[in-house]
Write a protein that binds this DNA or RNA. Structure first.
Length: 448
RNA sequence: CGGGGCGUAGCGCAGCCUGGUAGCGCAUCUGCUUUGGGAGCAGAGGGUCGCAGGUUCAAAUCCUGCCGCCCCGACCA
């Protein structure tokens, strides 16, 4: 992508409404634009990151047996009356009336709808297990939306639902999602610590929240230092091996980790040696629930078992805050100059900077490299604008692509490009003819 | 919902107290000179001063009502 043809309205000054760093940087980079309180447009740069995150979610869901589908944003109120949540949900639910006076709502989550779908289409235990998910916009009319897309009213969420015949099978489904979440966040370059959680309005008997550490996080967290020492990328798993899956879950849940809501100081002190106790702040990026028959029973979602008897399905639900992750990743990965994208979610693999746009030799070298890098399959943002060098450097640092390839008249003379690692700031001179190979290696390295 | 703050050009702000018909920086456009970490000079364009009433010869400025946004708290992916 040529910057001259891209839409990336970068702001030179900090917008006054943005307090926290991710919100500020997202606005400054031209990733998002607020339309009204807690509701945002995603501009091309931001949308690219959102898409990268969705790609990773889809890949890991597929691996763990999740089937993607798409349910609507608007739901009939009748569905929610069946589960009894229409009245429980309160003002957070946006209620709408259509022209025929039908009561509708903008979905804050989809347990009812998915249960209804499964109920109407699944009659036999032979059709189980099922694990269905979608990535769809949700609306929760928060009392106080804030911090940009971190706590928006409209937000993009991956929500998945499992249906099993027995409680044991349901718990195995929960475990598979637990492990897949570890993998999903790790694939984005994050360490998301699973913490025992309250079930809230979703209900149920078991739940874990996944939190990434960030100073600006909304939740206070307490956990065993061992989490920081773990190698998340090493969670390679055979999802068909229930014992192995349960082993990973046990490994992660046997260590103390809790948010302030349910933190038990006595247990913390008992279970974790003093020098290993860590407290800090975290951002919740995912939550999983196992709630058994909480929805299947009131909604009559049952199948015939092998013995011919009707059995209510055992369910869980599994959410990932996709749009929140964009902000969460920035909170976890930035410096004074701007964002530092982990490679897997970066909007582009690298930025190519032409320091002297209009100079025939420099333009020629840049065009050639741009073509070469692109043909190699890399996603390149080519800064071909005629701005001054300083502005280009500052802007590229701000948007935080993992690698910068800098080409100016000096380098063209010596046949060298300067390659800068955004995270470390390290700069290396690389001959033009080996550049593409090197960048291809760098950009496709498994994220560690 | 309680408490605090803010709405003036694309962005950041001054002007308001003490009414006299709108200004600064950056950005934008044109030209020339520059060009390896947010250039210089010269010129130009751009604003129903959040909205609606009221007071006044005259309102960005004073009064009333409304709307929107941000921050702190109780709730949440």
């Amino acid at each position: 992508m040529r910057l001259s043809k891209f839409f990336m309205p970068v702001l030179r000054d900090d917008p006054k409404e943005a307090e926290i760093v991710s919100h500020r940087l997202m606005l400054r980079c031209g990733m998002i634009r607020q339309e009204t309180g807690g509701i945002y447009s995603w501009l091309p740069l931001g949308f690219r990151v959102l898409t990268k995150i969705m790609d990773i979610v889809r890949e890991e869901q597929a691996r763990a047996g999740g089937l993607e589908m798409l349910m609507p944003t608007i739901q009939p109120a009748s569905l929610w009356r069946e589960s009894g949540r229409y009245d429980d949900y309160g003002k957070e639910m946006l209620r709408i009336t259509d022209r025929r006076d039908n009561e509708l709502l903008y979905g804050p989550t989809n347990e009812e709808m998915i249960t209804s779908i499964v109920k109407s289409s699944v009659q036999s235990y032979k059709d189980l297990p099922l694990n269905l998910y979608h990535i769809q916009w949700k609306f929760r009319d928060e009392i106080r939306p804030r911090f940009g897309v971190m706590r928006g009213r409209e937000f993009l969420m991956k929500d998945g639902y499992s249906f099993d015949l027995t409680e044991e099978a349901g718990r195995e489904a929960y475990n598979r999602m637990f492990v897949s979440y570890l993998r999903t966040f790790a694939a984005m370059g994050l360490k998301a610590i699973p913490m025992r959680a309250e079930t809230g309005p979703i209900g149920g008997n078991e739940s874990h929240e996944f939190l990434i550490l960030a100073e600006t996080g909304e939740s206070g967290v307490f956990f065993d230092k061992a989490f920081l020492e773990k190698d998340w990328s090493g969670v390679d798993i055979d999802y068909d091996d229930a014992g192995a899956v349960a082993g990973v879950v046990k490994e992660f849940t046997s260590l103390y980790a809790a948010t302030e809501d349910i933190h038990d100081p006595a247990a913390f002190e008992r279970e974790v040696p003093e020098d290993r106790r860590v407290s800090g702040r975290g951002i919740e990026v995912g939550q999983i629930f196992f709630f058994g028959t909480k929805y299947s029973k009131p909604m009559g979602c049952a199948v015939q078992g092998p013995d011919g008897k009707e059995v209510y399905l055992q369910s869980g639900s599994y959410g990932i805050g996709v749009s929140r992750l964009v902000a969460g990743i920035i909170e976890a990965s930035h410096d004074e100059a701007g964002i530092i994208w982990p490679q897997p979610v970066a909007p582009f693999d690298l930025g190519l900077i032409n320091l002297r746009q209009g100079d025939a030799a420099t333009d020629g070298a840049c065009e050639k490299l741009y073509e070469e890098l692109s043909n190699a399959g890399l996603d390149v943002l080519y800064d071909d604008r005629s701005d001054r060098a300083g502005e280009k450097f500052t802007r590229m640092d701000l948007i935080g692509l993992p690698w910068q390839v800098v080409i100016g008249p000096r380098g063209v003379k010596s046949g060298m490009a300067e390659v800068k690692n955004r995270a470390t700031g390290e700069k290396t001179d690389v001959p033009f003819d080996t550049l593409t190979g090197l960048m291809l290696d760098k950009c496709t390295e498994v994220y560690a």
